[in-house]
């Protein structure tokens, strides 16, 4: 395990390092002055020369990069070009708002996707399997923005169950502190906490549902195929020959091994989740990273673009690292295979 841990962590650290190099080079790739892109201070402003000195603007690239790194880790990510708010503090709130959406959607996807996948696998090529699988195929193929439109039309406009945009009704006066609306409601001093919570939940249902559907269908398909494959494996036959009940064979042998093989494909899941979160946040005007990024691209707010990209990439790398570590910890055969190929 130690060897596996060290290997994974070092890859992660190198990847993060490359990421910072990339985001640093973005300052030069973006149009305009690199120092402005880094700090959000324009060349004509008074403190430009000060910032220039702080960021070692007149020294060579390597020195600039080191200074960039120092500021990055100190949480000084510059100011927004459009409204001069500090990018890091803003970003943190957007980050939490996105995470709330993404983690809830992931939970929904896992809770419904995996059992349905197992269900379909046990009824392999029967009618119920075909029904579930066609549904999954359709759910996986539907463009997320169209699905969002349809569901908004149905639930928000026709039925009026859920609000169309935003995190919470501003009348409740919940001050954004962490960015995650459910946590914010708990932290708020409002006397209408219960109502505020209900309103927040009402707002979050639709985006979470829409965001969850595609990953859920993906998980369902992956899980069904993996479970079905495992049910054909010799060790499952041996377990059956031992007279174990079908349920026990499934729970003890087929599912853990199927989960192991599904976990190898989570990269796809996360990238799907994050891609869709960008679209969903824009549609629902959810104050998350995706919405922030898209807006900043329109406004050419380069410090924010940079920060959002950095956060997105970091989240993906972190998710994948956590999954890999869990994978290696729970399933020793993974470590065995990895170490053998290293």
């Amino acid at each position: 395990m130690t060897r596996y841990l060290v290997g994974r962590l070092s890859v992660f650290i190198i990847a993060v390092f490359l990421l910072t190099v990339f985001s640093f080079s973005l300052n030069y790739l973006f149009p305009g002055d690199p120092i402005t892109n880094m700090t959000g201070v324009r060349t004509f402003q008074n403190n430009y020369s000060l910032v220039m000195e702080l960021r070692a603007g007149d020294e060579n690239i390597a020195a600039q990069y080191l200074h960039y790194l120092r500021h990055l880790f100190a949480g000084d990510w510059g100011l927004s070009l459009s409204n001069s708010t500090p990018v890091f503090a803003d970003g943190l709130q957007h980050f939490m708002a996105s995470m709330e959406l993404i983690i809830l959607a992931l939970l929904v996807a896992v809770i419904f996707g995996l059992p349905l996948g197992v269900f379909a696998a046990t009824r392999f090529r029967q009618r119920s399997d075909k029904a579930v699988i066609s549904l999954a195929m359709m759910g996986y193929s539907i463009p997320v923005f169209w699905l969002a439109q349809l569901l908004i039309l149905l639930f928000a406009i026709k039925l009026g169950w859920f609000p169309i945009t935003g995190q919470i009704n501003p009348l409740y006066g919940v001050e954004p502190q962490t960015g995650s609306i459910l946590i914010d409601v708990f932290l708020s001093q409002s006397e209408y906490k219960a109502e505020a919570l209900q309103d927040a939940l009402n707002h979050i249902v639709l985006p979470v549902l829409i965001l969850a559907i595609m990953p859920m269908m993906l998980l369902l398909r992956l899980m069904r195929n993996a479970t079905q494959e495992m049910l054909q494996k010799p060790f499952v036959k041996a377990a059956r020959a031992r007279g174990l009940s079908e349920w026990r064979v499934l729970v003890k042998h087929a599912i853990p091994n199927a989960v192991q093989s599904v976990l190898q494909q989570t990269t796809l899941l996360f990238s799907l989740l994050l891609t869709n979160s960008i679209v969903v946040e824009s549609i629902f005007n959810w104050p998350g990273m995706g919405n922030w990024l898209i807006r900043s691209i329109f406004e050419r707010d380069y410090p924010i673009i940079q920060a959002a990209v950095l956060m997105f990439a970091f989240v993906i790398l972190l998710f994948n690292l956590l999954v890999e570590l869990y994978h290696g910890w729970r399933f020793p055969i993974v470590r065995h295979e990895q170490n053998a190929t290293d």
Binding site: P234, A238, G243, K252, P256, N257
Partner: peptide
């Protein structure tokens, strides 16, 4: 399950790799 048992040619494949 009660009265019979079977062993196979390739024992490693007939054991669950993850327990």
């Amino acid at each position: 399950g009660r009265d019979m048992a079977m062993i196979f040619q390739d024992p490693n494949a007939y054991l669950d790799p993850n327990s």
